[in-house]
Computed example of a mutant assay.
Amino acid sequence: MTPEDRRAVFSHRQIAAIIEGIMQEDGTEEPIMGKSLGEAILFVSEEAATSASSAHVIYGDNGSLSYTDCLSVYRDYGAALRQTPN
């Protein structure tokens, strides 16, 4: 991701997002809904730990972030995402 891509994603941090590809404790991969894009990036980057490498975040009309995209945005904007009311 370019710096411009990361900045654009950060600017959309309030829109609704869906996290897919996270293995639940029961072995299913149910989508995680009800989070903003900023919350989803934080979840994938901080909380999902070992099961996150196959995660991706869907947002907006056609937006999608891979696990590595989430980490890239998190590196630049993690502190600001934690401070932003989501």
Rank of each mutant, 00 (worst) to 15 (best):
N86R: 14
D26W: 10
T84E: 09
E4D: 14
E25R: 15
T84H: 06
S54V: 02
S45A: 14
D61Y: 05
D61H: 08
G63D: 00
L42D: 04
G21K: 05
R6Q: 14
F10V: 04
E39T: 08
R7N: 13
A16H: 09
I22E: 01
E39A: 13
S11P: 01
E30S: 15
T68Y: 03
L81E: 07
T2R: 10
E46G: 01
V73Q: 00
S64Y: 03
T84K: 01
A80P: 00
V44Q: 02
A16Q: 12
L37V: 06
G60S: 09
Q24P: 05
P31D: 12
A8V: 09
R82N: 15
A79K: 10
T28H: 12
A17T: 08
D69I: 02
D76C: 09
S66H: 05
Y77V: 00
H56F: 15
R13I: 04
Y77H: 11
A55C: 11
I32Y: 05
A55G: 04
V57I: 14
S51E: 10
K35I: 04
D5C: 05
V57S: 07
M23K: 15
E47K: 12
S36R: 06
L71E: 00
I32F: 14
D5K: 09
S72P: 03
V44W: 05
E39R: 15
R75A: 06
I19Y: 06
E29W: 09
E30R: 15
S51M: 10
Y67G: 01
I18T: 15
Q83S: 10
F43W: 08
I41L: 01
G27T: 08
D26C: 11
T68G: 01
R13P: 09
R13H: 15
E4K: 13
E4Y: 11
G27Q: 11
L42C: 10
S36M: 11
E47T: 07
G63C: 07
Q14P: 06
I15H: 11
I18D: 06
T2W: 03
T28G: 10
V73W: 00
Q14V: 08
A80S: 10
I18C: 13
G21V: 07
T50E: 14
A16R: 12
